[in-house]
Design a binder for these strands. Sequence first.
DNA 1: CTGAAAGCGCTAACAC
DNA 2: GTGTTAGCGCTTTCAG
Lengths: 329, 329
Amino acid sequence: MVTIKDIAQIANVSVSTVSKVLNGKGRVSEKKRREILKIARDLKYTPNYYARRMSSRIRVHTIGLIVPDITNPFFAKLARGVQRVCGEDVLVILMDSFRDLEREEKLIRKLRFFGVDGIIIGNSRVSDDLVKEVSQFLPVVVFDKNYEYKNVVSIVLDNFHGAYIATKHLIDKGYRNIVHIGGTHELYVSLQREEGYKAAMKDHGLSPRVYPTGYDELKGYKMMKRILKAENVDGVFCMNDLVAIGAIRAIKERGLKIPDHIGVVGFDNDEELCETVSPSLSSVHQPVEEMGEAAAKSLVDMISSRIRVRKYVFSPRLVVRESSSGKKG
Amino acid sequence: MVTIKDIAQIANVSVSTVSKVLNGKGRVSEKKRREILKIARDLKYTPNYYARRMSSRIRVHTIGLIVPDITNPFFAKLARGVQRVCGEDVLVILMDSFRDLEREEKLIRKLRFFGVDGIIIGNSRVSDDLVKEVSQFLPVVVFDKNYEYKNVVSIVLDNFHGAYIATKHLIDKGYRNIVHIGGTHELYVSLQREEGYKAAMKDHGLSPRVYPTGYDELKGYKMMKRILKAENVDGVFCMNDLVAIGAIRAIKERGLKIPDHIGVVGFDNDEELCETVSPSLSSVHQPVEEMGEAAAKSLVDMISSRIRVRKYVFSPRLVVRESSSGKKG
DNA sequence: CTGAAAGCGCTAACAC
DNA sequence: GTGTTAGCGCTTTCAG
């Protein structure tokens, strides 16, 4: 490994002169400067990142990004938003926990020893205690949950509102017997979406019916099948797109037409999915990439101890496609 | 920031004793050891990662992972495979180039200054010269292209074979007038898939017809529309799933039935996509996660200068779904 | 302009 | 067992 010292020796100057030239600081005679630069190039000199970071307050930061599954479009988009802010001078260490909560907590704890300057935690199932603990050492950004700890900023979506507009949209389109296939109650977002749905129903004099179910296609399929057998339904608001797609499958199997007999709306607006399924699926869109950007920005702000906010609330919007375009007959 | 020196002072011992305790090396009296550990805990001491890396051959490695778009399931899966091998003691710096070749090359060049010990380049459009250049400084793993440089290992899929089995499958199912909607010719993989298709056709006495087109849904849709107007077709082998989905849309619009009138096979086997589209899409599966694992493993091997291979070739397999289940009528 | 020297925080010989 | 000391590679005063 070639060091600044090697260069100094060859150029017959001191290391500090070389350092100055390489960093463009202080003044050095043009002659020496050229010579030193040339030598450095010839020797393929690479400054030692770790030595640099040690001896000076260097401008490059490192942030850790923890996600439960980078393969999930939500987290991939999140990562993308983060990348949009970083890359050039902020490094992102990606860690995938494979939805293993234990691994996740271990990774988060470990991150502190890996020289990161801050952490973005891309999901909300980690314990509050852990967030509190880690935030004593590093600034932290979390999603989908509110924290009052100093050194922590929360990025949340207005899930209530998203669910509300989705439900209201179905009502406006003429559907009346609208059910909600929701997530389990451990997740804060599930609760919020459920509340939004309920509020919209009540505001329109309709009675809500909620089926807490889960988060994947199969769960949606099975639950919808059950509901169709037992109930009079003409509308479904699902907690996410996967569940909605399962529901669509069940509805089709039963020989019912979407949107003519039943309207369906999902959540997340995974575009590939929503546009590929037939009929195409209306869905509530979260500005995930922007949320990722906000996360990275405010983390960097905290790291540089600039002014910061405690919480960002993003607004969802409804993307209307075929699956909810109006009841007929 | 609390350092080992602070601890030493409080405990009234030397820094080396503290270091020994903290690293579990050498022998220290039980009494002091407990005391030191306690102080460290009380002070919330965090070892300085950069100082450590400087003063010793530390066991944790850092690798850079460059992808053109983490949002693309292919690269997300790749990242996942890499993560499966890393995380605990190998850090992964993720860099997304946003499909901007210039940014990509800049990032790759820059990575060298960020203390990474090796690089995985997740696509093949970077210039050979750059790969050569970078591999002078760091071990490199590249995908989908063969390199003979020392310090570079290639991970490739047998695209020829994949295309061959896909085409042969269509033939076996009774389709005869099979066309290939392919990628542009800049990409090595496009060429290989095209060759595989041609070979299969010729081996069965059929004449190949290739339409180099592109990589997204819209391109597939438009091209298929044109083909349907001009030609007699009963089978399509597409260069990827997106293109296939576009083709399916065009075929349906034309009022033709899949698989009864026309059989369709894609490539990549993006499961969500393939199973969501109707009819579900047969596709050639790449073991992407495994490829990512192999990439990470062999990179770490190179870093530790263990024995290494020059090249990994993975075999694709065909996943048969509805879209190619046989011609009728 | 240029160089000597003091650290950054930690590890690892090597004495005691 | 424990402490002293010499680096790791680089930046940064501070003299000259």
